[in-house]
Design a protein around this nucleic acid. Structure first.
Lengths: 258, 258
DNA sequence: TCAAAAATTGACAAGATGTCAAAATGTGCA
DNA sequence: TGCACATTTTGACATCTTGTCAATTTTTGA
């Protein structure tokens, strides 16, 4: 019993090790650079053993992504518990999404890769089901906020639009913008100064257009943003500014060197 | 001179032939199923000759996509010439985009594939530049409509949002929704009845929120849609309904058979 | 007609995935 | 402990790609 359990622990440990190695490659070089061969070398096991853990490299990708969606899910959960009007809770969701992408900038790209041609077909159903379940959970969290707002009569939707369709639209907006940003299109050059701010602003306009109370000019937008940062995501905000400082420091020391 | 020209024509013809073959594979089986080998076989030339036309299969993909964006561009041009208020012209752009996707349902996916991991790095710069140029042209067409509206005082934007940022938001919304639709997420099951309609409705809400005159309830929305279909896209709408009829016919004859 | 130029071919190297028989290691019983 | 049996690990192998290039064929133009 004890030896069996030790073996199982070893297998678990190895699984994590391989996922970590894959994560590093994915973040630094992308999915195209990921190969079973390399994971075998770096983990110092043979290729056959890697295949015992993952049916293909696509499964490794989706398992990494599932972990990231999981993390986003906890961000969403926390955001949805923000103490404020329902519309402010939705704003907190936007902040959560942006913060998530800011902390791990490669995430949107990786998520996109899961949906790229030929990936989903290769992934074994279990991992894919898990992926779909996690995505549905995200939608659920946001849909709940919309439903709360409707219940509180702060939002009325007519027959042409139901709550899930609104969530679908918000999702499209955020997802689309994060993807376009992850491409190498020279947005700055085209005239986009701050993509994140623009999208937040436009989602606000969308909600105003639907008549979601309080309207954008009826509450202190910046004050709410500040409260969300302080009350919900204090640790993450600190981590982010810390990282930015470290980056500018190393940038300075680099430019001093040259 | 004449023989040289004949040779050149032959090369041109072969280039088109190979692109056509690739297009068919891409539409039916996707990018993963595309291989230089297969194009060589189907075109009855050798692999080396295929490589004389295209540096890699990624270049074939991007050239196919460029043709599709080109087509979208002409749709946009026509839409932007719609005889109506500037806001109605923008609605025509949405119709153009949806019609484009409806006529060639694989297009959004193919476009996404261009931006998938490891594609842009392999494509030779010429084709990539062309791609970026075409995308910038699309943005330009829409930005012009926004600028016209501002010039006509039908829309005022404050400092937090400029015209290109608004276009970026509209683009994100459309692009994101078309991608999500192209995935195999069971949207219907989650509660989304008509994704295209929902997005059109929400983009309208967004423009209302920005105060773009005339507001959504101030003009006959369905009447405008009808006019756009009749005046700008009559041929394409006819083609689409014709195709749908053919499909339901074959569906019927199929079910009669069984 | 023929030599030089250009185009075409397919064998080949490189590198990846996924399989599987053989080798190594672990388990449990006498 | 020693031994037979079960499980795990390994890496050679078959297969499939891409991309290259020397040899061959075709075209050109004088």
């Amino acid at each position: 019993m004890k030896t069996l359990s030790r073996k199982q622990r070893e297998i678990h440990h190895r699984h994590s090790l391989m996922l970590e190695i894959a994560e590093t490659i994915l973040k630094n070089e992308g999915f195209a650079a990921l190969s079973m061969e390399r994971i075998a070398e770096l983990s110092e096991y043979s290729k056959g053993t890697v295949y015992q853990h993952f049916a293909c490299k696509e499964e490794i990708l989706i398992q990494c992504c599932n972990a990231h969606i999981q993390r986003l899910s906890t961000f969403f959960e926390r955001a949805s518990q923000f103490d404020g009007r329902h519309r402010e809770r939705l704003l907190a969701i936007f902040v959560a999404h942006d913060l998530w992408a800011a902390l791990e900038p490669k995430c949107p790209e990786l998520l996109q890769t899961v949906s790229a041609d030929g990936i989903r077909d290769k992934v074994p159903p279990e991992s894919l089901d898990e992926h779909n379940r996690l995505e549905a959970a995200l939608i659920g969290i946001v849909a709940n906020i919309v439903n709360d707002a409707i219940y509180a009569s702060e939002l009325q939707l007519d027959d042409s639009l139901n709550p899930v369709e609104l969530v679908f639209g918000l999702w499209s907006l955020s997802y689309g913008s994060q993807l376009i940003q992850s491409y190498n299109i020279p947005l700055q050059q085209l005239g986009v100064r701050d993509a994140v701010n623009a999208i937040t602003r436009l989602s606000g306009a969308m909600l105003d257009g639907l008549g979601w109370q309080p309207l954008g000019h009826e509450f202190d937008y910046d004050e709410t943003l500040k409260r969300i940062a302080d009350e919900v995501f204090a640790d993450e905000m600190a981590l982010l500014t810390e990282r930015k400082l470290a980056q500018s420091d190393s940038y300075q020391s680099n430019s001093q060197k040259t």
